[in-house]
Amino acid sequence: MRQFGLFYRKEMLEMARSYKWIWVPMVFLLLGVMQPVTTYYMPEILKHAGNMPAGTIITMPTPTAGEVLAQTLNQFGTIGVLVLVLSMMGIVSGERQSGVTSLIFTKPVSFIAYMTAKWASMLTLTAAAFACGYAGACYYTIQLIGSLDVGTVIQAGLMYMLWFVFVISVLLLISAWLPNSAGVAFTTMAFIMLLSFGTSLLSRYLSWSPSRLSTIASEILTKVETLSSVGPVLWISLCSILICVMLAVYRMQSQESISAKA
């Protein structure tokens, strides 16, 4: 536990010194704010965009506040996930590649503390970034589009956050496996995209898939009757997160050689 605190504080400090604590939340804030603003200005932008004959009337259904927020979550699901993965892809492999692990692991350290501290630090940064972006999105949506129900917003937010936790757990597991950062980022993105795509394609069979979390969050906001029951998805997601972290620890522990260079 003492070592967990030590590792965790070190990760926090590293994230601060590499400016991650500024740029990742800022990107999320920007993502969150952009969606309501573009939605708001869309009619005017369209009006001025094409050379349409005078008198053309564009009728667009004005999206509800909930729909706008759901679209924002979509942005988080693509660009947001990419930013998270890219910003944290080197969290394990960077240390192993540089060789600093040979100083760390010759000390009496626990692999459980080492890996879970990394996981917790990723979780902290992700939560902070998501909170920033989501809060910004809510604020602008209320200002520009219409009011939101606080309970719904929080419920959807928590649901979406769990999806992010799943993503970083997968990232941690793949980090324990692959020796280089680019490979980690690519494999994680490929896995997440395949999972999301597969789930939407075979939604009937994969109604328990963790990637349903993001869909459920949107459905809560847009008040669409959800087709899947939330319970199994929550349980499967929590179990997958736990399994990912445990496997990642196990993998680190059982490696023949700790530093990537033999």
Partner: peptide, 26 residues
């Protein structure tokens, strides 16, 4: 001319500026 509400756009520009300044400092 599109009526621009600067009160709305200013924060977005501010965030962009922060990102840029942070990157340049780094």
């Amino acid at each position: 001319n599109i009526t621009v509400n600067w009160g709305l756009l200013a924060p977005i520009l501010a965030i962009q500026l922060i990102l840029m300044v942070t990157a340049l400092t780094s």
